[in-house]
Amino acid sequence: MDNRKADKKLKIVEEWCKGCNICVAFCPTNVLELRNNKVAIADIDKCTKCGLCELRCPDYAIYLEGSEDEK
C-alpha cells in the first residue's frame, strides 16, 4: 500500500479549476494554495497523498495519478 502511495503523483488540471478554494482549505497538511484564482502546489514535500483534495474537488481539477484502479 505504501509503495503504491509513493508511486502516486499529485496532478492539477488548471483549465478545469474554478478557484473555489475547497481543496486548499481541506488539505490536512497545507500543500495547496490559490495563485491567480487557480489551485497551485505550494509545498509538495508536505503532501501525504491522502487524496482528500481529489475527493472534494467539484471540478475534477486535482487528482492523484495512479490512485484509481488501473487494474
Binding site: 474554478k18 473555489c20 467539484p58 475534477y60 487528482y63 492523484l64 484509481e68
Partner: peptide
C-alpha cells in the same frame, strides 16, 4: 488529462461542467 475515474465514467468532451465555482 484527468483521473481514471473521470475518464472511465464521464463524457470527457462535455467537461468541465458548467456548475458554479464551489457548487
Amino acid at each position: 488529462m484527468s483521473s481514471q475515474l473521470i475518464k472511465n465514467n464521464f463524457r470527457m468532451d462535455r467537461l468541465p461542467h458548467i456548475w458554479c465555482p464551489g457548487c
